[in-house]
Nucleic acid binder design. Structure first.
Lengths: 237, 237
DNA sequence: CCCGATAGTCTTGTCTGACAATCTGCATCA
DNA sequence: TGATGCAGATTGTCAGACAAGACTATCGGG
């Protein structure tokens, strides 16, 4: 996988319409590493070195370093001083922590959405759902993961709560780790579609109790299903 | 500020938890800038340049850069590509966002604390309260701010929710900005003491409704009081 | 006189190369 | 055999440099 150079000059045509703000090289590096984690190319617990990655991705060490710092701050990587970085591993407790925290924040977002009389926030939800529906069946698991993640981020964005949006990257990192640990988790896009459709339907009712049940179904239940699947092997290198 | 070496061999008991993990120079820079923001030395909206800060703090530009990146990620600074960094400013909506989000997450933490039968989490709350009480009347406003912030962080830590702890830095950054924008907000330590005492008392009852009321009193009310005090001057340099 | 284009400058983004601090593993010696 | 110390590896930090994009001010045209 050494030939994934993100040389911008190779493509002279400015016709890429991806809204990815990957203008900077650092963002490119981040995307590349994140993709490797999602794909399982880099396994949880595996050690990463700055020089290795800089050769790998054909960028300088400072650039790699900035990317790694950011990802460590988000929690996708864990950093031990003078000892390197590893892809984070999460245990059963962490999975439940994520589920509980998302319940709280998803409900916060939902409350803000249903309390908006202008209908703008609800419209944003519909937009997110439409975009998600378009690509959810993509054969590329990375694309599916990204669209899934983007859907939930847009749900938070629809609440128009500025802090919530800032909390998202950290939440997403945890989510990514968990899904990366269990490959089977993203094996059933049809089921994912049904669950998310119920979620949107619930939000449309504007009944917070119904919404809570739908989120519980979506988040807590899937977490409880995920925990027994944990392969609890010790971190190796 | 360089002589903070305390040899770990001197104390053989592994009792100490976090003396200051500021082993690195980057953390020193972060603390320095954060302190300047809290003190009002750097005002919201003011522009920061990397070279200026590196001369200022006597460190290299890459080090300053790493610090600035981290703080931008936390939200204390806002970063516009090729245009520099400024101390973030928050409007009334953002203050209410912070209050609502903290309500949700504080209640999540409180729920985890009261549901813990071992009593360990409640003991952590008591510890946090004891530490906070010791320094809350310190004449240095920065010390007071830090102890206040540390108290709330430890409340989240007491929930033993790993994700919550990772969400704290972003939350703290918003809190810091808001308090920095309104100097008067930290002018009354006695009142702060009463409010926080009621908070701890409420948690001791283990009654979630009482706890909710206390947090509401603490968080939402103070936010509503803060909003009219906003000096809505345009960002200058 | 006012307005728009262009050049210069400033700041960030990135690179190269280097050195110090620290951890790890292996070899040596009591 | 066990402890010690040295060498390699990796991170943390530094210095200097250049390119890319954005801001500013001057100059020319309407």
């Amino acid at each position: 996988m050494a030939e994934t150079h993100l040389s911008p000059e190779s493509m002279s045509l400015p016709l890429r319409m991806s809204p990815v703000a990957s203008v900077s090289r650092r963002d490119g590096v981040i995307n590349e590493i994140r993709r490797a984690v999602v794909l399982g190319t880099i396994k949880p617990g595996e050690k990463l070195t700055e020089v290795q990655l800089s050769e790998w991705l054909n960028v300088s060490r400072p650039t790699v370093r900035e990317a790694l710092n950011q990802m460590a701050q988000e929690g996708l990587l864990v950093q031990e001083p003078y000892r390197g970085l590893r892809v984070a591993t999460l245990d059963a407790a962490a999975i439940m922590d994520l589920a509980n925290t998302r319940m709280a924040l998803d409900m916060l977002a939902a409350t803000a959405i249903v309390e908006d009389d202008s209908g703008r926030r609800m419209r944003m939800v519909e937009e997110s759902w439409a975009e998600y529906s378009q690509v959810e069946m993509d054969p590329d698991p990375v694309i599916r993961h990204e669209s899934h993640v983007a859907f939930h981020r847009k749900l938070w964005a629809a609440s128009e709560n500025a802090l919530l949006l800032r909390l998202w990257p950290v939440t997403e990192a945890h989510l990514t780790i968990i899904l990366a640990q269990d490959q089977a988790a993203r094996a059933d896009p049809a089921r994912a579609h049904r669950v998310h459709e119920k979620l949107v339907d619930a939000i449309r009712t504007k009944d917070l109790e119904i919404i809570r049940k739908a989120f519980s179904e979506h988040t807590v239940r899937s977490a409880e299903e995920l925990i027994p699947l944990l392969n609890t092997e010790s971190p190796k290198e």
